[in-house]
Amino acid sequence: MIMTKKFCIASSMDGMNELRLQMEYIASAWSLSKRQLFEIDLVLEELCMNFIEHTESVESDNIEIELALENSTVYITILDKGPEFDPTKVAAPDVCLPQHQRKAGGLGLYLVKHYIDKISYKRFHDTNILSIVKKTE
């Protein structure tokens, strides 16, 4: 059985609040475990925040999110019309650095890559398209 959900959020902190509400609905409707919800939630928050923080988007821009769950595998597609940005090319931070050499930032995409199984990016016309595959427990 395949369960799907498609929704749009604004490219702003209001949009992040909407994402939170959508995830609460999906967790209930799909009977996600606490662990499944945590990991999907984290992946979506980090990728959407990355878009909001690193592009010159305006609030009227939307981020389109498609989720599908089939046989314990979650397929996530995130589409936005912001400037071209490929998060798969972002260098990983050094997580072995001592505290005094640590700087804020850079950990979001690192966490995403830890929790997912596959990520791919393509630019199609004026749209960034991120496709993620994540196996869950």
Partner: peptide, 17 residues
């Protein structure tokens, strides 16, 4: 604490320093 993301880690790094 049920959830933390990199935004939370950023605050934790600052508190630690």
């Amino acid at each position: 604490l049920d959830y933390i993301s990199s935004a939370g880690l950023r605050v934790m790094l600052n508190i630690s320093k």
